[in-house]
Write a protein that binds this DNA or RNA. Structure first.
Lengths: 332, 332
DNA sequence: GATCAATGTCGAAGCGCTTCGACGGTGAGT
DNA sequence: ACTCACCGTCGAAGCGCTTCGACATTGATC
């Protein structure tokens, strides 16, 4: 494997000159630069990442903590990760993958200087990782909103506003009896921040818009979804508007409604909160509030990079939700 | 940040002794070990990953190349990644995430000594990454089967056998007119190895089992799926057995059949090739050949680690497919 | 023609760790 | 009692890179 010394020799310069050509931190005359670049190309030289990290205290790697337990909103996470990786590359950084609850991994990555910065997904209200992040030298950005966000950078969709928006939309279409079908109970209990926030937004906005609303948790398995829908229709048969924030359950909710003889959108209007492609992949193209996972991922990287480079201070960015009307909602 | 020197000072030993305590490469007396461990704990010391990589030529990181373009079999990929990360941790390694077609990233990771080994997903018949991998010092394992696998380690489900198994199962149930609904045309054209292999297995086994079989590609969007199913039923109305190897299309295939008045499994038997949880998440619990993504991921890591540690030679491992009968197939 | 600033390059130090060879001390073998 | 091995520990070298200060050159300025 060629080293910087080899390149220097081949180009007839010193190692430091090669380094400066690479980093651009000092001016180099055009002919010298050309010779060095030539040598790099012919030798196929790549700087040794470890040596670079050791000397410069920069790894050019960012850490990404992702929930890898499958089943939970998988497409969202995938899109998010895609956004992070793509944008990280644009900032000339690679991505180290950590799993969500691996506190030890978080310590290792930060204290062990494996990463320059961290993007942390799926933050809970009182997240155990927050103290570790606060203690670390590296900037980090949370996706989600912990109870106490002071001093931390956060990005997310404004889920509370999304909940309100759904309520408002159903109200404007003339619905009065509505329900929200939310995440599985276990996720609710975990107080994952976005889950809480959607429910709060919806529940608080509903009465303001003259809606009679209820909120139910819902598992992802088809049989369970059917049960939840059945119970809902039995208890409040007048329900004409549904707000579904549960990717896995969504197709089964639609199936069940159809089996129960309730046409969408003629009998029941359904608003979803999910990525656009999921909304379009249903039996009926869904009126939905977009969950721009990839955008949030990119943004998270931008924010953390700004802090890394500019010493920017912490900020919280909440994206305004946008509702797109498609075929699953109609005037009452 | 505490260094090994700080630990050594605190424990009253030399730095090399601390290093040997950490690595276990030389024997250390119990009292010394205890003092060192104590010092490590109180100082919260973590070795600097870059320094370690530089001195030892080992990074304790493996690279994982994953297709991040969303939409394509997302749950499978997620489960696979989960298997890789989990098992990598058990081997005391972290995971660097690379995107599928990032050849430049592959060069960087290997030549730049960012990783000790590589796991490469979704291999195509003539994959552009293979020459790069061959040239690199690091061992690698491919998930999939390239045209020429000599000298390479590969793991995968035996997709060809899976195709045969599906044909056999439908035949044994007495079906004669069957069809396979496969991946989207674009994926087929890419010659992603597993796609080719399933189709080949099914197409070759069908006549052997006295089946009249056809194979159609199928997009993931609901409307398109309906079109494909409609065409199929129109052209060969006698079709009573279906083999679906397309996660995204699967729910829509089932919906369409139902809408067309064909009950599953009474009128049409459907065998799927997908992860178990996907099979269970359908309207009808599916008779399916399990796609053990997580297991394959673990196995990939095991193989690559064995080569790293033992200097083991390359091997190809194909997992035998297992078909589980559930509610979606029945005797004709 | 002497002075000064700017420009381009170099040498050396040092980042934090691993590892090799060396060395003193201890217990066994004779 | 003396040698020999072995065990536990240390010191030093070196991994490949960045970066700082220093040193020539060069051209502009008076």
């Amino acid at each position: 494997m060629a080293t910087i010394e080899d390149v220097a020799k081949a180009a007839g310069v010193s190692a430091s000159t090669v380094s400066y050509v690479l980093s651009g931190k000092r001016s180099i005359s055009a002919p010298t630069r050309r010779r060095v670049e030539q040598a790099i190309a012919t030798l196929g030289y790549r700087p040794h990442a470890g040596a670079r990290a050791l000397a410069s205290a920069r790894t050019e790697v960012i850490g990404l903590m992702i929930p890898l337990r499958s089943g939970i909103d998988v497409p969202v996470i995938m899109q998010f990760a895609g956004g992070v990786v793509t944008r990280a590359r644009e900032h000339a950084h690679d991505v180290l993958l950590l799993t969500q609850d691996d506190l030890e991994g978080l310590e290792r990555a930060t204290n062990g200087s494996m990463v320059d910065a961290l993007v942390v997904m799926d933050v809970e209200a009182d997240d155990a990782r927050i103290p570790i992040l606060a203690r670390s030298r590296q900037p980090s950005v949370l996706v989600g909103l912990p109870r106490d966000a002071s001093g931390l950078s956060c990005v997310d969709l404004d889920f509370e506003a999304a909940g309100r928006l759904a309520a408002q939309h159903l109200s404007e279409l003339g619905h009065r009896q509505v329900a929200m079908i939310g995440a599985p109970q276990e996720v609710v209990d975990r107080h994952t921040s976005y889950v809480d926030r959607v429910m709060r937004g919806f529940a608080q906005a509903a009465p303001v818009h003259g809606l009679d609303a209820q909120v139910v948790a819902c598992p992802g398995a088809p049989a369970e979804v059917s049960r939840v829908v059945d119970e809902l229709l039995a208890e409040t048969p007048g329900t004409s508007g549904l707000f579904v924030h549960n990717e896995r359950a969504l197709p089964h909710v639609l199936s069940r409604l159809r089996d129960a003889g309730r046409a969408v959108p003629e009998d029941v209007s359904v608003v979803a909160l999910c990525p656009e492609d999921v909304a379009l992949a249903q039996q009926v193209p869904m009126t939905a509030i977009d969950l721009p996972a990839s955008t949030i991922g990119s943004l998270a990287v931008d924010i953390v990079m700004a802090r890394l480079e500019g010493g920017q201070h912490a900020e919280t960015r909440l994206l305004t939700p946008v509702l797109t009307t498609r075929g699953s909602t109609a005037r009452r």
